[in-house]
Measured scan of single mutants.
Amino acid sequence: MEVRTIKVFTTVDNINLHTQVVDMSMTYGQQFGPTYLDGADVTKIKPHNSHEGKTFYVLPNDDTLRVEAFEYYHTTDPSFLGRYMSALNHTKKWKYPQVNGLTSIKWADNNCYLATALLTLQQIELKFNPPALQDAYYRARAGEAANFCALILAYCNKTVGELGDVRETMSYLFQHANLDSCKRVLNVVCKTCGQQQTTLKGVEAVMYMGTLSYEQFKKGVQIPCTCGKQATKYLVQQESPFVMMSAPPAQYELKHGTFTCASEYTGNYQCGHYKHITSKETLYCIDGALLTKSSEYKGPITDVFYKENSYTTTIK
């Protein structure tokens, strides 16, 4: 009895394709271990004539594949690729409408935090270190965002349907971005203890939790000093293409032309909904596939993004 075979390709990165001759009487799992086709788990399936010449994702289970996976995804987590594939199996079914010149995501599976993050990423200057993220990001900007969303979920250790947080998501993504040249110098002034300067680099240099107003941050924000008295913390120097200011959701007025974009969060910790506000020729609110415009805006804002380049204080 002759062994019926077909020729397929296996890959971990969709760049390096490895030619395989597979036995049609055995499952993919018996031949390769966990195997995925377009995100779908085909591990328990036997090869079919229609699979001839198709590319299958496999887990990096030998040295060659491990090197290829690390170079593309910059992670050695053995569960990463499987999590990416199972997320992709959902995100490829989502709709990605162009809204006001940006790629958004039609609401499904509690994905409003991903839509808000995706919209924000198209408006701030950011370059990702893992080629996987950078490639998928370019495709997302062009309207094909399924891979990018699935990668975000995998890097953030999230599953489809789980509630997510924009600030946490951005923080994970910033860790995989090139923020080497970003720098922030802060000064804390206390009447009792004097003053202390701190220099922050990388992710810490672009994120701040405690106030939404970048102007206020430049002037000074009140913080408790270690001595128990009130101290003032203010920005001395900022070198970065953008800054992200966050605070627990509270009524906040966004003035046209003073910011790049913002995240609105309605609801409580267990259950809520994100919308995205962007400042173009007027203010726009993007909620999944829905767009509304207004000249002014007041609502429960939790993150505001500002364009920056270089700032030095005039406070002496």
Score class of each variant (00 low, 15 high):
Leu291Lys: 01
His51Asp: 12
Thr76Phe: 10
Lys106Leu: 14
Thr282Lys: 08
Asp180Gly: 11
Leu133Gly: 04
Asn187Ile: 05
Leu200Gln: 11
Gly288Ala: 02
Ile124Leu: 14
Asp13Trp: 15
Cys156Ile: 09
Gln196Lys: 14
Gln123Lys: 06
Asn178Glu: 11
Thr75Gln: 07
Thr76His: 06
Leu151Trp: 06
Tyr113His: 09
Asn187Gly: 08
Pro131Ala: 02
Lys7His: 09
Arg4Asn: 14
Val3Asn: 13
Val236His: 05
Lys201Glu: 06
Gln251Thr: 14
Gly220Glu: 02
Gln238Ala: 01
Leu126Glu: 01
Ala146Asp: 01
Leu102Tyr: 12
Tyr265Gln: 04
Ala231Pro: 02
Leu186Ser: 09
Asn157Gly: 07
Ala140Leu: 12
Thr199Ala: 09
Leu173Asn: 03
Asp109Phe: 03
Arg83Asn: 13
Ala205Asn: 01
His74Ala: 05
Leu17His: 09
Phe128Ala: 03
Glu253Leu: 03
Tyr297His: 07
Tyr306Val: 03
Glu239Trp: 02
Gly228Thr: 09
Tyr84Asp: 05
Gly267Leu: 15
Lys233Phe: 06
Gln123Ile: 05
Val236Gln: 01
Lys95Glu: 15
Thr258Glu: 12
Cys271Ala: 14
Glu281Gly: 01
Asp303Trp: 00
Gln270Ser: 15
Tyr252Pro: 00
Ile286Asp: 02
Glu239Pro: 01
Asp62Arg: 07
Leu102Ile: 08
Asn111Ser: 01
Lys46Met: 00
His176Met: 10
Asp135Met: 12
Tyr137Thr: 03
Gln30Asp: 12
Ala136Tyr: 08
Val304Thr: 02
Leu17Val: 10
Glu125Arg: 06
Tyr297Ile: 06
Cys149Pro: 05
Met244Lys: 07
Ile15Pro: 06
Glu68Asn: 10
Gly82Phe: 12
Phe70Tyr: 15
Lys95Asn: 08
Leu114Asp: 02
Arg167Ala: 01
Thr103Phe: 05
Phe217Thr: 07
Phe174Leu: 09
Phe70Gly: 07
Lys46His: 14
Tyr265His: 05
Gln31Val: 14
Phe80Asn: 09
Val99Tyr: 13
Ser310Cys: 13
Asp77Ile: 05
Leu212Val: 11
Thr232Asp: 01
Lys298Gly: 04
Asn268Gly: 09
Pro60Gly: 05
His48Arg: 12
Glu71Arg: 14
Leu173Asp: 03
Thr76Asn: 07
Glu253Val: 09
Ala145Arg: 02
Cys227Ala: 03
Tyr252Asn: 02
His51Tyr: 04
Asp303Arg: 00
Tyr172Ile: 15
Ser213Phe: 03
Ser104Ile: 08
Gly299Ala: 08
Ala177Pro: 04
Cys271Asn: 12
Glu308Leu: 08
Glu125His: 05
Pro224Phe: 09
Asn187Trp: 06
Ala145Thr: 01
Pro97Tyr: 06
Asn110Ile: 02
Tyr172Leu: 15
Glu215Arg: 01
Tyr172Lys: 14
Asn111Ile: 00
Asp135Thr: 07
Thr314Glu: 15
Ala108Leu: 01
Gln230Trp: 12
Ser240Cys: 03
Gly164Phe: 02
Leu163Cys: 15
Ser279Gly: 03
Ala115Arg: 01
Thr198Trp: 11
Leu114Gly: 08
Lys191Val: 09
Gln31Pro: 10
Leu88Ile: 02
Cys193Ile: 06
Asp63Ala: 13
Tyr252Ser: 07
Asn187Thr: 09
Lys233Gly: 10
Thr5Tyr: 15
Pro97Trp: 08
Leu133Lys: 10
Pro249Val: 15
Val58Glu: 02
Leu200Pro: 00
Thr266Phe: 08
Asn100Leu: 15
Ala108Ile: 03
Leu119Glu: 00
Cys156Met: 07
Asp287Gly: 01
Cys193Glu: 04
Asn61Lys: 11
Ile105Glu: 03
Ile105Gln: 06
Leu200Met: 08
His90Phe: 11
Arg167Gly: 04
Val3Thr: 13
Val166Trp: 00
Tyr137Gln: 02
Leu200Ser: 09
Thr226Glu: 11
His276Ala: 03
Val58Gln: 03
Ala250Asn: 08
Leu65Trp: 05
His48Pro: 11
Thr198Asp: 08
Gly210Trp: 01
Trp94Cys: 05
Asn89Ala: 13
Thr266Ile: 10
Thr103Pro: 02
Val189Glu: 12
Cys271Ile: 14
Ser263Asn: 15
Thr5Gln: 12
Gly53Tyr: 11
Met209Gln: 15
Thr266Asp: 10
Asp62His: 11
Leu59Ala: 14
Asn89Trp: 14
Gly202Asn: 07
Leu37Asp: 14
Val166Ile: 03
Lys7Asp: 10
Lys307His: 01
Leu173Ala: 00
Pro78Trp: 11
Pro130Ile: 06
Asp63Ser: 10
Thr226Gln: 13
Pro97Ala: 08
His176Val: 06
Thr103Tyr: 12
Thr312Ala: 10
Gly82Thr: 15
Thr120Asn: 07
Ala69Gly: 08
Gly29Phe: 10
Leu153Val: 04
His48Ser: 11
Tyr234Met: 09
Ala250Arg: 11
Leu126Asp: 04
Tyr138Asn: 13
Ala87Gly: 14
Cys227Trp: 01
Gly299Asp: 12
Val185Asn: 03
Val188Leu: 07
Glu281Leu: 01
Ser263Tyr: 03
Ser279Met: 05
Val22Gln: 02
Ser79Asp: 13
Gly194Leu: 02
Thr260Asp: 02
Val67Ile: 14
Glu168Met: 15
Tyr284His: 10
Asp23Arg: 12
Gln222Tyr: 02
Cys225Thr: 03
Asp23Val: 12
Pro34Cys: 14
Asn49Tyr: 13
Gly288Tyr: 14
Thr278Val: 10
Tyr306Glu: 02
Pro131Ile: 02
Asn268Pro: 06
Ser295Gly: 10
Met209Tyr: 15
Ile301Gln: 01
Gln196Asp: 06
Tyr137Val: 02
Ala142Gly: 14
Tyr113Trp: 15
Pro78Cys: 07
Ile6Gly: 08
Gly143Cys: 07
Val8Gly: 06
Asn16Ile: 08
Asp287Lys: 00
Arg141Trp: 06
Val243Asp: 04
Leu200Thr: 11
Thr55Asn: 08
Glu264Lys: 00
His256Phe: 08
Ser263Lys: 02
Thr116Cys: 15
Leu163Val: 11
Cys227Ser: 02
Trp94Lys: 05
Asp13Tyr: 10
Ile301Lys: 00
Gly194Cys: 00
Ala140Gly: 06
Ala150Asp: 06
Phe56Trp: 02
Gln123Leu: 05
Gly210His: 07
Tyr57Pro: 03
Ile286Gln: 08
Ala140Gln: 02
Gln216Ala: 12
Tyr28Arg: 12
Ala87Asp: 09
